[in-house]
Design a protein around this nucleic acid. Structure first.
Lengths: 154, 154
DNA sequence: TTGCTCCTCACGTCACGTGAGGTGGC
DNA sequence: TTGCTCCTCACGTCACGTGAGGTGGC
């Protein structure tokens, strides 16, 4: 028993709580293939998860919530992420040539950049909404100051 | 005919196109009371809208999309916005005392501030996601640079 | 008259929520 | 044994999408 993270010690309710969602959502994502079905599970027995599953779920939920992606669009991102994981394995096992390593790293980089582009677009929209609202805010504050002024001088 | 904005000249398809949605969504929002039912319309006759309806719809869609609000939560925002509109009318007609004017402006200000708070929360989450991704990005770029270096010196 | 957009049902879909009835581990 | 969480259907809901069949304005 080394100090690695607890392997497969979490039940569905605890995973849901940590990731900020519900058991139903986890089962639904498993059904869609967004989350891996915990392998060799007798029908009716409990699902068991590890810390990495919590991370993955939390990341899915963040991308969905913040970027407004549908589960179908998320599937693409997830698949790319999984492919990246497989490549990382190949890298880690040390059986990749320098050229192969460069391919793997570039592909991972492109994947990250696509997500960053989505984030940038969102931020622009959010900034514009904020600018409009702060504009109104300043206007109203000015009016209030004016009113206070008048009450003083009269 | 003065140079005011065209009154009630737009049909549902054009409104949808300008606001970036579909006729079905407009009818659904009308059904829920988020958009006003165009008044005195014979059953089966066309709905007609003005520019202000386009603005209102676009704003609803932005709040829903960017802040992730449900239509039920949006209803609250919309109602507050409508109340603000009524108050502004009272203001405009000039029949508000200075004290009353201050009340109206403060209420409007609080309403804006609530929305700005929601935006700030969203931005924080978005920033955190971006930081994590740029962290990975920098790491990968470093690895790529290292690989290029090795290919050179060997 | 011919297109085009509009209308009203009404059923379908996506992403889950919510019981119903039952089994399994501390 | 008693709670608690889990399980699998399966129907409900929210926010629309998508025809079906028909009417109305340039």
């Amino acid at each position: 028993m080394s100090a690695t993270q607890a392997q497969a010690g979490l039940r569905i309710g605890e995973v849901a709580r940590r990731a900020g969602t519900t058991p139903r959502t986890i089962r639904y994502y498993e059904e869609l293939g967004l989350l891996p079905a915990t392998p060799e599970r007798d029908a009716g027995s409990h699902r068991l998860y590890g810390e990495s599953d919590v991370e993955r779920l939390a990341q899915i939920l963040r991308l969905k919530d913040l970027l407004g992606l549908s589960l179908d669009e998320l599937r693409d991102v997830i698949e790319a992420e999984d492919a990246r994981g497989a490549l990382r394995e190949e890298w880690r096992r040390g059986e990749a040539s320098p050229q192969r390593r460069e391919e793997i790293a570039s592909e991972a980089l492109r994947h990250i950049e696509r997500q960053l582009a989505l984030i940038a677009r969102r931020r622009e929209k959010l900034d514009e909404l904020e600018r409009e609202l702060t504009g109104k805010q300043v206007l109203l504050q000015g009016r209030l100051a004016e009113l206070a002024e008048n009450l003083h001088t009269t």
